[in-house]
């Protein structure tokens, strides 16, 4: 009897110890790992700075990008995520309430409910398009997307039947609406989602090596363009419907060929975003300031992309190396 009392006392003290540990560490942040290599690099750069220069402990969580991630950030489950591309995010217009500033210039504005905080631009500017290899463009005489239908049988695979195949935007949460775009533009192609960036690129590399024509969705900066000669098909310029009904709330009602998604993508001033409550805390003021000042350049990312994706080097090592070699590039981001 006595012993069971002692044991229960021990359990009780254990619970007390637990609850004393429950107070979260003040200098602790959680970040979502992006699901494309460029995003991973930008995020690792930010995390390295936070950890090594500002003394944070950052927990990196693997979480698929998309609306779910935005909601997790709004709920405070994740403190911040990196390199959101505005024209891919469906939630930005609903959840952000701020202006997007790039190098002092206003490049966009949001009037959502402010449940997510726009931390600032990353500095990387993204462009997306559909690409074909130059040899195919020259051989078949394809000048724009309008010529694709004429040669669709050349782009066909056993899986796509009579249609051509687009190696499409691989991740569902990115909201590329590839099939919708193809249908609206009357391109008789089938969009194949391969699940991951790596799978899509591997497919493209294999086709390139066989010198077959293929249509590939891709974005810049990407290492692929450094190794393989690709040309864009020049989709129509980016435009949105007025009013914009192509949203989840609008039940994805499109306005035909007049606007998105029947157009190409806009120039993306990528941004970091986080939980407003977390970054309003005084102990995170330094981190907030860092994100406002961060200005990571395309050229730097492109160099690291080659190291990580092609040479298969460890991401952390590559970022560390860049940080050690280029102190002049990041010194100005660090608040003093």
């Amino acid at each position: 009897m006595k012993l069971s009392k002692i044991i229960s006392a021990m359990i009780l003290s254990f619970v007390l110890v637990l609850s004393s540990f429950a107070q979260a560490n003040a200098k602790r942040l959680t970040a979502a790992v992006a699901d494309w290599t460029g995003g991973e690099i930008s995020c690792q750069v930010a995390v390295t700075m936070l950890e090594e220069e500002l003394g944070y402990k950052v927990k990196r969580i693997v979480f698929p990008s998309g609306t779910g991630l935005w909601e997790a950030i709004a709920a405070g489950e994740i403190d911040f995520a990196c390199e959101s591309w505005p024209s891919y995010a469906e939630s930005d217009s609903v959840m952000l309430n701020e202006e997007l500033i790039y190098e002092g210039k206003k490049v966009g504005s949001y009037s959502g409910d402010g449940t997510v905080d726009l931390l600032g631009t990353v500095g990387v500017i993204g462009m997306s398009d559909y690409y074909i290899p130059r040899y195919a463009a020259e051989e078949l005489g394809i000048k724009s997307w309008k010529d694709l239908n004429k040669h669709k049988d050349k782009f066909a695979t056993i899986e796509s039947g009579g249609k051509g195949r687009l190696i499409a935007c691989p991740v569902a949460g990115w909201n590329c609406h590839d099939q919708k775009r193809l249908n609206l533009l009357g391109i008789d192609f089938q969009a194949d989602e391969l699940g991951t960036e790596a799978a899509a690129v591997a497919e493209a590399v294999a086709a390139y090596k066989r010198k077959e024509p293929f249509l590939l969705y891709l974005w810049e900066p990407h290492w692929f363009f450094g190794s393989y000669d690709m040309v864009g098909v020049g989709l129509p310029d980016h435009k949105v419907c007025d009013p914009d009904t192509f949203t989840e709330a609008g039940n994805w009602k499109d306005c035909g060929t007049k606007g998105w998604p029947a157009t190409g993508w806009a120039k993306d001033y990528t941004m970091n975003y986080g939980n407003p409550a977390t970054f309003a805390k005084p102990e995170h003021a330094k981190a907030k300031e860092f994100f406002e000042k961060m200005s990571f350049q395309n050229a730097d990312q492109a160099v690291m992309l080659v190291e990580v994706s092609q040479k298969k080097r460890d991401l952390k090592e590559v970022v560390k190396e860049w940080k050690d070699a280029n102190p002049d590039k990041w010194r100005s981001w660090i608040p003093n």
Partner: peptide
């Protein structure tokens, strides 16, 4: 769907990504 499967599994993934 992580390696290219289609059908209901992909729908589940789409649901997650769009919350």
């Amino acid at each position: 769907p992580l390696i290219g499967g289609k059908g209901l599994g992909l729908e589940v993934f789409n649901g997650l990504a769009r919350s």
